[in-house]
């Protein structure tokens, strides 16, 4: 009963409420790893359905949204910080679906708000399953680069340990760059066993592949997509984010190699 009252009260929202919702929506969509073109399309689609006109500026860390009421011309501008959540294609898909449901009239404003809240609290995938799948992926990667079965096994173990360290440190809210250095260092040191103990015929491939699970592929791909769409600031920002993480993983790898005094020549 209470829910019905709330829904009826906000079924004809004013421009200020809609702008607050849309800026929050855009901030979450940006945070979960959507490209700029998708953020714009989704937000404009919903704004049109709510009867307001919006202009959106997507900055590297902020969303600036200005909404104008088509009837009385009232306008509001809002600045919203981008939500720093983990990349989630599931959230991206559900938020995109929500925008279409609003545009097609299948979802009222009140319904959209409650669904949005639900999407924001989406539980992440099972961490142990992700851990095993990521380790298997990296071992397969090793095979693709010509590694033998011993190297694949070593890469599996080093990825498993490195990725677990990454998960634990991120759960403890450690700085993501420091996390990358540590995870890369541990994976490199463990996989250096092939070099040190003469395991298998492809120790170089095992060592090289052990840290590849850390390569931030999604920011690089998003960066190219933003560049093609003319969002150069965001493209540059995402590229630099990827570069910083790549440098961090390289740093961990180099520290591991130098510490073990591995002769690469």
């Amino acid at each position: 009963m209470r829910q019905e009252n709330v829904t009826s009260e906000i079924s004809s929202p004013d421009v200020k409420e809609v702008c607050a919702f849309l800026s929050d929506y855009a901030a979450w969509l940006c945070g979960c790893g959507a490209t700029c073109i998708r953020i714009e399309k989704n937000v404009y689609r919903m704004a049109a359905a709510f009867g307001i006109r919006v202009d959106l500026s997507i900055m590297p860390s902020h969303i600036i949204l200005t909404g104008r009421d088509m009837k009385d011309g009232a306008s509001f501008s809002l600045v919203h910080t981008v939500c720093r959540s983990a990349i989630s294609f599931d959230m991206n898909t559900r938020l995109s679906k929500l925008s279409w449901d609003v545009a097609d009239g299948k979802s009222s404003y009140g319904d959209a708000l409650s669904r949005f809240e639900e999407i924001k609290h989406t539980a992440p995938a099972n961490k142990w399953l992700v851990l095993v799948l990521a380790s298997l992926a990296n071992a397969s990667f090793c095979r693709l680069f010509g590694g033998d079965s011993v190297s694949m096994l070593v890469v599996f173990v080093s990825t498993f340990c490195g990725y677990r360290i990454k998960q634990m440190m991120l759960e403890d809210k450690a700085d993501v760059r420091f996390v990358f250095v540590c995870a890369s260092f541990f994976s490199a040191v463990l996989s250096a066993g092939c070099h040190l103990f003469g395991w298998g015929d492809t120790p170089g491939i095992a060592l090289g592949c052990s840290v590849l699970y850390l390569v931030p592929g999604i920011p690089y791909i998003n960066s190219a997509s933003d560049m093609l769409d003319g969002h150069y600031l965001c493209a540059f920002s995402r590229f630099m984010n990827g570069m910083v993480l790549t440098v961090c993983l390289s740093l961990g790898l180099i520290c591991g190699l130098l510490m073990l005094n591995i002769d690469l020549a």
Partner: peptide, 12 residues
């Protein structure tokens, strides 16, 4: 490899 790396980015 794709399934494993996909799992990291939490797809449907």
């Amino acid at each position: 490899a794709a399934i494993g790396f996909a799992a990291i980015s939490n797809p449907p």
